[in-house]
Simulated assay, not measured.
Amino acid sequence: MSTLLLRLAGPLQAWGDSSRFTRRETRSEPTKSGVLGLIAAAQGRPRTDSIVDLLGLRFGVRIDQPGRILRDFQTAHRSSDGAVMPLSTRFYLADAAFLAGVEGEPELVAGLAESLRRPTFPLYLGRRSCPAPPDLFQGVVADDLVSALSTFRWVASRWHRRRMGSTVRLPIVIDDDGSAPGDRLTARDVPASFAPERREYVWRDVVRLEQLATLPNDLARDDGDDYFTVVASA
């Protein structure tokens, strides 16, 4: 198996899995549907195309910089007649950074990597108002998903790294195959169809790993423990 790694970081990102009508939520970490949609856009797939080959990829996220929830109110006018549309509430993640990985057969992963190096369509972090960073693609490693997320370098922003201690402990959330201890939950973020007239999502099992990724911080502050160390030992 090989694992493709992505740095999902920016001023704003949004990863909704339960949005309804005028209230548009975001999860606290990237969704599988959002990342697979980003990959499909890099490949140039129309929304109506099948994505069955992508659904077998094992997905995981390391929370390198948790960010904060931001709420925004938006208004809009219909272009055809100028009618005022309902006020909507949209939630975003501000100043967050994640290392996302997809694991699959080496040949498939290599093809995805080539598409991400030269994407066909513009890439976004969940919504069109949230462009992907220039260093989105972080490469492919010949390792399984958990090992890749546990050992790859810390991808938080420099200003965030300067605030933290010499060692950081980072949470990892992955597709659950029943082999790793941790907190188990479900998420409805596996895309059955991206077709605009009928988007469909199904459930997946997720595990928040008991073991955190422990990494060095070369821009560490001089005093005290970092946030993740304090939280993990509380």
Rank of each mutant, 00 (worst) to 15 (best):
D49Y: 11
S50Q: 08
I51T: 11
I51K: 00
I51L: 07
V52Y: 00
L54N: 02
L54K: 01
L54F: 04
L55A: 08
G56F: 06
L57W: 05
L57I: 05
R58A: 11
R58L: 04
R58H: 08
G60F: 01
G60T: 06
V61Q: 02
V61R: 01
V61N: 01
R62G: 00
R62E: 05
R62S: 08
I63M: 07
I63V: 15
D64R: 11
D64C: 14
D64W: 04
Q65P: 12
Q65V: 14
G67S: 10
G67V: 02
G67Q: 05
R68F: 04
R68T: 06
R68Q: 14
I69V: 14
L70V: 14
L70M: 12
R71L: 15
D72P: 03
F73G: 07
Q74E: 13
Q74I: 02
T75F: 07
A76G: 07
A76P: 00
A76M: 05
A76T: 09
H77V: 10
R78M: 05
R78D: 13
R78W: 03
R78P: 00
R78T: 00
S79N: 12
S79C: 07
S79E: 13
S79Y: 00
S80G: 11
S80Y: 14
S80V: 10
D81S: 05
D81I: 07
D81Q: 10
G82Q: 09
V84W: 03
V84M: 15
M85H: 03
P86D: 08
T89E: 15
T89S: 13
T89H: 14
T89G: 01
T89V: 14
T89P: 01
T89C: 06
R90Q: 07
R90T: 00
R90L: 01
F91P: 01
F91A: 01
F91C: 00
L93V: 02
L93K: 00
A94P: 01
A94M: 06
A94E: 12
D95G: 07
A96P: 15
A97P: 06
A97K: 06
A97H: 15
A97Q: 11
A97C: 11
L99P: 02
L99W: 02
A100I: 10
A100C: 14
A100N: 09
G101H: 06
G101V: 11
E103M: 10
G104T: 01
G104M: 09
E105Q: 13
E105K: 12
E105F: 10
E105P: 05
E105G: 15
P106K: 10
E107A: 15
E107V: 15
E107G: 13
L108F: 14
V109Q: 05
V109T: 08
V109R: 03
A110K: 06
G111P: 08
G111V: 01
A113E: 12
E114F: 05
E114W: 10
S115W: 03
